[in-house]
Computed example of a mutant assay.
Amino acid sequence: MTDIETLLAIEEIKQLKARYFRSIDTKEFDTLRTVFAPDATFDFREALRDPVLGTPEGVTEHEPVSGLENIVSYIGGALATAQSAHHGHTPEIELLSDTTARGIHPMEDTVLNGSFFFRGYGHYRETYVKLADGWRIHTSQLTRLLVRVESR
């Protein structure tokens, strides 16, 4: 790849992640279908787990979700009635080939959902694949640095 092609691919992946954040916060779950590859895996086991304090009482951890429709259904169900704000910052993206890449996206999120208020900081560790219609997330793992959950 030329330097320009490399920069273009990195920018396309940044835009892909931005579309992910926007679509989950605005509840545009059809748009979320344009973010993940058909055979994607989303590992959110650490989504509510603080690395020091552990998982809050009463919170059930789930196994990773595989497959585009399963991922969209899970995220849609988890956030359907929540108010949320997700932000990604200064990603590190490495192209591995013309059609594969990996990246780390520092992030923070705030979620208000019925009886609890949540704020977290961490990283999305991802791999990407370029399909006929553009870059897609192939694997996504959310890891945490700090989590705070409060009852309302």
Rank of each mutant, 00 (worst) to 15 (best):
G58M: 07
A78I: 11
G67M: 06
D109N: 09
E63V: 10
F42H: 09
D30E: 15
T31F: 04
L7V: 01
E150Y: 01
R22F: 08
H89I: 13
V59A: 13
L145T: 15
K130G: 08
R152P: 00
F116P: 02
E12C: 00
R45N: 04
A18P: 01
L68F: 02
T99K: 03
A78Q: 13
A37I: 09
E12A: 14
L112N: 07
R19E: 05
I93A: 02
A132D: 14
L112A: 04
I104K: 14
T99H: 09
L95H: 09
R49E: 06
S151E: 12
L79F: 15
R33W: 01
V147Q: 06
S84R: 03
G114R: 10
T2W: 01
D50P: 05
E69P: 01
A78D: 12
Y128V: 10
T26P: 00
T2C: 01
S140Q: 13
L146D: 12
E46W: 04
F116S: 13
E126M: 06
V147T: 12
I24L: 11
L8Y: 09
S73L: 04
D25M: 06
D98A: 14
L145Q: 14
M1W: 00
K27L: 00
H87V: 13
G58W: 08
V72R: 08
R49H: 04
